[in-house]
Simulated assay, not measured.
Amino acid sequence: MTSWPLSLSLLRVYPKKLGSAAAGWAAGRTLPGGLREAVLGRFVRAYGLDMAEAERPLADYPSLQALFTRRLKPGLRPQAPEAPGCVNSPVDGLLIASGRIQAGRAIQAKGLPYGIGELLKHDPGAARFEGGHYLTLYLSPRDYHRIHVPIRGLVTAVGRVEGELWPVNDASTTHVPRLYERNRRATWVALGAGPDEGLEVAAVAVGATHVGGVIIDGRWLSGRTLPRDGSLPVDLLPCAPGDDLGTFQFGSTVVLLIGGPGAARWEPALTAGPVRVGQRLGLFR
């Protein structure tokens, strides 16, 4: 632990869950109308949010949380045309890691593997992703923070895993072992259908310090409450690229797992760099 950056060493003793709960409470407080542009404007300028893309003007957002979970103007993120095996980006962000899942492992950063079975804690069949692909998408504070469905298919399960709340940034990914399987997270799993038949995709939304809130869209819950630490079956509800999947309250990371019998012939269209919702991440070769 002596090689850790000072910021991470201090976080070992910081009450991360309590601090995150307090930050979430503060972000959700309604601001007086006359203060919204001044207070929220500081956040916009500090992180470089592009408000020209936002669905509503700045003064219409009642709280920092409402601004952070803003929708975009309709039509700004068109989905890439469907093609055999197409998987589209579920978020705006940065593709920071990708590769094959081998021996049940994915790579967080150089020299730091993590287990797919542990990442999908409540899924007893995680071995079916063996030989498939993982893609890790990081969201910065400036990014749009809604998560969208990446494939055409049938949703089979959603879940939540209680865990720690380490930050998810360069320092953490390169120093904190098994970061994604340690942190609080929500999971969404679907079988591919139509052009995506033969694939199975899991989207794992990983929380972080001051980013404990990961909300799965109510459509997939069918009136049920997502357990604190457990999973719910979903009765093969149809999904299409671009549908609402969930929302981050503040930012973090989505790990996409691509498995199923068609995964062996699935090929990524890119392995690193910026991505936007609806951008094609890969397809059958």
Rank of each mutant, 00 (worst) to 15 (best):
D60V: 03
A66Q: 14
L76G: 10
R105I: 03
A83Y: 05
F68P: 03
G28F: 03
A23N: 10
A103G: 15
D92T: 13
G125Y: 08
R36K: 06
P124M: 00
I96R: 01
A22G: 09
G99A: 15
K121N: 11
R71C: 05
P74A: 15
Q79K: 00
A46M: 10
G41L: 13
G115I: 03
G48V: 09
N88P: 01
T30G: 07
A38S: 09
I107L: 12
G117I: 07
S98P: 06
A80D: 04
G93V: 08
L112G: 01
G93M: 10
V87W: 08
V39D: 04
F68V: 02
I116G: 04
G33N: 02
R77E: 02
A126I: 08
P141G: 05
F43L: 15
G24L: 15
T30P: 07
V39I: 12
T69S: 02
V91W: 11
R42P: 03
R42H: 07
L137H: 00
A46Y: 13
P32W: 03
A103P: 04
S63Q: 12
L72C: 12
T136D: 01
A21R: 13
L135D: 04
P57C: 05
I116T: 11
E82Q: 13
R100G: 11
A80T: 08
L67G: 08
L119S: 04
F43S: 01
G28K: 13
P62H: 13
V87L: 10
A22H: 03
S140K: 15
P124I: 00
V87I: 12
A83G: 06
A103N: 13
A21P: 09
E130S: 11
L112P: 02
L139T: 00
G33T: 08
R128A: 03
E82F: 07
G111S: 11
L58R: 06
A59L: 01
G115C: 05
P74L: 11
H122L: 08
L112T: 00
K73W: 04
D50A: 12
R29W: 07
A126Y: 05
G111M: 09
V44P: 06
A97N: 10
G131Q: 14
H122W: 01
G24I: 11
C86I: 02
A109N: 09
G111C: 09
I107N: 10
P113F: 11
P74N: 08
G41T: 05
L76A: 01
R105F: 00
P32M: 02
M51S: 00
A21F: 12
S98D: 07
R36F: 03
L67S: 06
P57W: 02
G115Q: 10
P124K: 15
R100Q: 09
Y114T: 05
L119F: 11
R100D: 14
L64S: 08
E130W: 01
E53P: 05
Y134R: 06
R36I: 03
L58T: 15
D92C: 12
V44I: 12
R70M: 13
S63G: 14
V87M: 12
R105T: 06
M51Y: 05
E82K: 05
V87D: 06
T69A: 13
A46P: 02
K73N: 10
G85T: 14
A26R: 08
P62M: 12
Y61V: 02
T69V: 02
A26G: 10
G33F: 02
